Simulated assay, not measured.
Amino acid sequence: MSVRPIARVAATVLAACTAVGFAASSAQADNPVAGIYVDQTWHKGGYCEFRPYGEHLIVKDRDADGHSAVAELTVDGYGTYYYWNSNGYDTTRDVDLDFAEDHHVTLRCLLGDWQGTPTGGIIWDSYDHMLEWVTTWT
């Protein structure tokens, strides 16, 4: 076999490997689910999760501490929203949202004591200071 056919085979193999590499990396490019705990001295009092497929927001109260779990969801182009789970310990609130595709989403999980307004009663320093927020895309 001469050098020219070997080079052609090598180029074909390289192109195929590159195409497979691009396909694999694009399939794993985005982590679809963004989840974060709210942590007050390692109790993990709440858990918030955004699932882009179907735009679901999950807000869990994980500690019988008398506080509600609160999700702060910021969607580029839409604004910032607050979703409360005031149903007590060991409950989950599943909010079915409706946002257009391809928007950047930032999620933060907090604790609060409901005072009648979306932000009234939020304990602003209750978030996990090691991992303040998580992001994904709709």
Rank of each mutant, 00 (worst) to 15 (best):
Y53R: 13
A15T: 06
Q115L: 11
C109F: 01
E101F: 08
G116R: 04
E132Q: 11
Y37H: 13
L57A: 01
L110K: 04
D30I: 15
W114L: 07
V105M: 00
C109M: 03
W84V: 05
S68L: 03
Y78K: 15
D63L: 12
L110N: 07
H103E: 08
E55N: 15
P5C: 00
S68Q: 01
R51L: 08
I36C: 04
Q115C: 08
V13R: 07
E49V: 03
V20G: 12
S68K: 01
D90N: 14
Y127T: 02
G35K: 10
Y37K: 08
V59K: 02
R8F: 09
T92H: 03
P52H: 11
F22I: 09
A34G: 06
I123W: 10
R108W: 01
T117G: 03
Y53H: 13
V95E: 10
H67E: 12
A10K: 05
R4L: 12
N31T: 15
Y78M: 07
Y127D: 06
S25M: 12
E72R: 02
T74H: 06
D128I: 00
A64N: 13
I122K: 04
Y78V: 09
L73Q: 03
W124L: 04
C17M: 14
S86V: 12
A23L: 09
F50R: 00
L111W: 12
T91P: 02
Y89I: 08
T91L: 03
A11W: 07
L131F: 14
T12A: 15
I58P: 02
G46T: 00
D96E: 14
R51C: 06
Y78F: 10
G120M: 03
A27R: 12
N31S: 14
R4F: 13
V95Y: 10
Q40P: 06
V13I: 07
A34R: 00
D96R: 15
G45F: 03
T138F: 02
Y82S: 06
Y78G: 01
R93M: 11
G35S: 10
Y37L: 08
G116M: 08
Q40C: 09
V70A: 01
V9C: 11
D30P: 11
G79L: 05
W84S: 02
G79D: 06
G66W: 02
T119R: 07
W137D: 10
L131V: 13
E132T: 10
T92R: 04
D63V: 09
W84T: 05
D76A: 12
V38S: 14
L14I: 08
R4P: 13
V9A: 15
V95R: 07
V95H: 07
T12C: 14
S126F: 03
H56I: 13
T12L: 15
E132R: 13
D94P: 05
V9W: 14
F50N: 02
S2Q: 10
V95S: 06
D61K: 08
F22K: 06
A19H: 06
V105I: 03
L110M: 06
T119V: 13
T92Q: 10
R62H: 11
L131Y: 15
Y82T: 00
A23T: 11
V75C: 05
S68W: 01
A7C: 11
V134I: 05
P118C: 04
N85P: 04
S68I: 01
A7L: 15
R4E: 15
V38Y: 05
W42F: 14
Q28Y: 12
I58E: 02
